[in-house]
Structures are given as structure tokens and as C-alpha cells.
Amino acid sequence: MMSRMDALKVLYKYTEDIPVISSCGNTSREWASLGRRDNHLYMVDTMGLTPSVAIGVSLTLEKKGIKKCIGIEGDGGILMNPNSLASAGYLNPKKWMIIVFDNECFASTGGQCSLASKIDISKVAAGFNLEVLQADEVDEFENAVKKALETEGPIVIHAKISQENHPNPFINDDPAVLAYKFSEFLKR
């Protein structure tokens, strides 16, 4: 089974000019460890909000040449804010792409069991009329990323990952600076 880091390394290759918003905790820390870029927005708190923020950004991209806005969320986060799936199903933001890393636990707080161990997030997203690609291995994930980036319409990649974490320093930057860099990238 792939780790989050295996998948993030793949994503990093394909997103040099694509805005990516990463959820708080290990996801943002591992993502930043691959190399910081101005097209990244690292969430330092507000668990579950990433898919919603990505909806808003993706709406503003409709008149721009950028292909997608990608949000990276965990299973715990997506089940904390399934409202974002409802909004995406309703608004149909063509440039919205979400990757749900599903390890069936709250890895950032010590691996406590999450609701995803008994709930199929693919079916939840499909129930909100969203297209879903499933990927459990690295090559499947790479194909899903390539396909999703070329898909015109909101899309969810549901990736099952291991519970492995790669220790990395906390992101303790001034959030205003993180947002400023990201906004400036979007103005290009």
C-alpha cells in the first residue's frame, strides 16, 4: 500500500504551475518537505476547510488559463465537512479537484480510528454527483492525477494510503505571508 509521501511525490511532479491547497497536520508538512512553491497554500489549522477553499479558488479560475485548483484533504477532514462535497455537486466548479488521502485514521493526532473505516468515501462523493477516481497504488494514483488534470469538471481522487507518517518540522509561518504568496501566484 502506498504511503502519503509516495503519492505526494507523484503529485509534486505534475503541479509546478497548478494551485494546490493542503490540509493541516502531516499532509501540509510532508507536502512542504518536497519543496515549497508559491502555488502552494498550506493550511495550518481549520481542519476540513480545504475542499471549500478550493471551490472558491476554482470559481475564480474559470476566466484564467490555469487548469485546476487542487485541494488535498484526509478522510477525517472530508467527513468533518461533507458540506463541501454538497457545494461542489451543486456548483459544478469545472476546475475543482480534490484528493482524499484515506488511511482510515486521524494520523496527525496519533492514528486514532476515523469513521472512514466503515464509510466508503467514494460512494459518499458519488452520491453528491461527483466523478470519482480510485487509486490504491502509486501507478494508479499517477494515472488518476494525469486524468483528473485533463478532466473538465469537478473531480475527486479517493486514494487509500498506509498510516505511515514522515516526521517533518511544523509549518509555523505567519499565515498572512502564506496567503499573500498564494494570491500573488493566482494573479499571474
Binding site: S52, A54, S87
Partner: peptide
């Protein structure tokens, strides 16, 4: 457009604002 819950709305609004609108 309507939102389903205000927290989701704040997130969407924030994304719009970060996108320059």
C-alpha cells in the same frame, strides 16, 4: 448561490477572495 452550511461558505468565500474577487 446558496450554501449548505456557513463554515463551508466561509471557506468558499475565502477561496474567491484569494483568487482576487
Amino acid at each position: 448561490f446558496p450554501i449548505s452550511r456557513e463554515e463551508d461558505g466561509v471557506g468558499i468565500a475565502a477561496g474567491i477572495s484569494l483568487g482576487g474577487e
